[in-house]
């Protein structure tokens, strides 16, 4: 099929950037979206033009490296990562807009590549359980009710791609932050640091300049892993609980 892509081209962080159109004549519906861009990049290279910079690594929907806003939607029209989106989701003659994640906390590095270092710093602010190597007790000494373990796992499947931020009308990273709070907060191992974790992570979230959550749910709709919105409510509850106990 024939399609036209309009791609955000930005040479470097200080460049103004603009949308640039490219026509592709021979796109197979079996191609993945990123393979379509690969093909375009091969062509651009041979024409002596700079190929479009975009991030991707595992290309099987788990590493969280890829992420494009396609036709205004984070990761495009299907509920999946960009790398798992296929051209069969589009039709002949389509004009497809491709833009980077947009958030002032995710500055554009080049073209479609953004800097998501803020996520690592949020984790540094408390998104862990302090368990020095070698100090662990026997694993089965700590039973975890299956229900809690399953819920914790559900939250833990977050791949840190940043689609929640890109989709949120406020540019909030609450879903990302809350997924970690929920994962660790539902496990007995996570209890000792529960208050300090939420206080530290929320403080860092705000410090990074992310917006606040207005409970719209666009994040969870865009999330390729379907992290539920109730994680954010858990974060709120944990934070208010910690404040009420005077932990801040």
């Amino acid at each position: 099929m024939k399609i036209t892509v309009r791609v955000w081209r930005q040479a470097n962080p200080s460049d103004e950037g603009k949308m640039v159109g490219y026509d592709l004549d021979d796109v197979s519906e079996h191609m993945s979206f990123l393979e379509m861009l690969d093909v375009l990049n091969e062509r651009l290279t041979l024409e002596g033009e700079e190929p479009i910079a975009f991030d991707s690594d595992c290309r099987e929907g788990i590493c969280g490296m890829c992420g494009l806003v396609i036709n205004g939607l984070a990761h495009g029209p299907e509920r999946t990562t960009t790398c798992q989106l296929h051209m069969r989701s589009f039709k002949d003659g389509d004009v497809i807009d491709i833009e980077p994640w947009r958030s002032s906390s995710f500055p554009v590095v080049k073209d479609l590549v953004v800097d998501r270092g803020a996520f690592d710093r949020i984790i540094q602010a408390g998104g862990y359980i302090s368990a020095p190597t070698g100090s662990a007790p026997e694993a089965n000494n700590l039973p975890v009710p299956k229900e809690n373990a399953d819920h914790a796992f559900e939250a833990a499947t977050c791949i840190g791609c940043g689609a929640c931020v890109a989709a949120c009308p406020n540019g909030s990273a609450m879903l990302f932050t809350a997924a970690k709070i929920t994962h660790l907060g539902l496990l007995p191992q996570g209890q000792p640091e529960r208050a300090s974790r939420v206080l530290g992570m929320v403080e860092q979230h705000d410090h990074e300049g992310f917006g606040n959550c207005t409970n719209i749910g666009e994040c969870t709709a865009a999330c390729p892993k379907g992290i539920p919105l109730d994680t954010i409510s858990r974060l709120n509850r944990d934070l208010l609980g910690a404040l009420a106990k005077g932990k801040a």
Binding site: V202, H205, D206, H207, C213, N236
Partner: peptide, 13 residues
């Protein structure tokens, strides 16, 4: 980045 404030003055609060 915005100014670092404590959790009492966070967006959640």
């Amino acid at each position: 980045m915005t100014k670092r404030v404590g959790a009492r003055r966070s967006t959640v609060a």
